[in-house]
């Protein structure tokens, strides 16, 4: 917070003129960006629909209650599928990530070229959303649980591998040296030196990823097939709002349950 000389009088200012200028320019850019974005989106919007929305929302809400209890007979199997998608998707990703991470971490990678290839796979997998993966996989293996599971797995692979290999790179090297010095084989060094250090991080990451994947699994079915997402989509297309409410309620319950389980497990680890 500099003192600025103005008309021979020292004045306290919060920022230097230069800081003020940069801030001004940044603000200007931001305002222009927002205005451009707004005019663009407003041009793409059918305002009649938006104006009509409050009345529509009222209408939806009135038709949502009471929720359709009978529909839970259909919801429960779909929820079971959703959980299957999240568990198997996460499981496949975690198992594969274990090996990918070993190949990707600087200190365990067998060769820089291998590392580069694996890192590329990780980046590609991470940058594409699971919904997009599902779109691709549906064309390859057909719609159904399998496509959804693979989509979740492919996306999580990058996410989990990244956290895994960062954990491997941050490992404490002294115990590794000590185990090496006992004449242990490479595998034994891994099991006694690396694994005990890594396991808590690995399990924590896996559980946290599963919690996220439950959320993803609620929608992946819309493209991939299977699960609660498919049900939601069809209920909405039928404009059966009391059924929609039942589906939303069950999604809420599942996600809250998953968060609880994940928090408990991670707490037990620390």
């Amino acid at each position: 917070m500099p003192l600025v000389k103005k008309n021979d009088v020292l004045e306290w200012k919060r920022r230097t003129p230069r800081q003020t200028l940069t801030r001004f320019i940044l603000l200007l850019v931001a305002i222009v960006a927002v205005l451009v974005s707004w005019s663009f989106i407003s041009a793409e919007t059918t305002w009649e629909f938006v104006k009509d929305a409050p009345r529509q929302i009222q209408d939806f809400l009135s038709r949502m209650f009471p929720p359709d209890i009978k529909y839970f007979g259909k919801i429960l199997p779909a929820l079971w599928d959703t959980i299957t998608i999240s568990v198997f998707g996460t499981g496949i990703a975690v198992v594969l990530s274990f090996f990918l991470a070993i190949l990707a971490a600087k200190n365990t990678s067998p060769h820089p070229a291998v590392r580069l290839v694996v890192l590329t796979i990780i980046v590609a997998s991470r940058s594409v959303n699971s919904m997009i993966w599902a779109m691709i996989l549906v064309q390859l293996v057909g719609p159904g649980l399998f496509a959804s599971i693979l989509a979740i797995a492919v996306r999580s692979l990058g996410m989990v591998s990244k956290l895994f290999y960062e954990a491997i790179e941050e490992i404490d090297k002294e115990p590794i040296e000590a185990i090496t010095a006992t004449g242990a084989s490479k595998l034994q060094i891994f099991v006694y030196g690396y694994l005990p250090q890594l396991l808590p991080t690995f399990i924590g990451t896996a559980v946290y990823r599963w919690e996220n994947n439950i959320r993803e699994s609620t929608i992946i079915g819309i493209v991939g097939g299977g699960g609660i997402g498919l049900l939601l989509n069809s209920a909405i297309n039928l404009l059966a709002w009391n059924k929609v409410l039942s589906v939303l309620m069950s999604i809420l319950a599942t996600v809250v349950f998953a968060e609880y389980v994940s928090a408990r497990v991670r707490k037990a680890l620390s």
Partner: peptide, 11 residues
């Protein structure tokens, strides 16, 4: 071999 920082596997 015996190490300065003990080099035990903590967990």
């Amino acid at each position: 071999m015996i190490f300065q920082e003990y080099a035990l596997v903590d967990r």
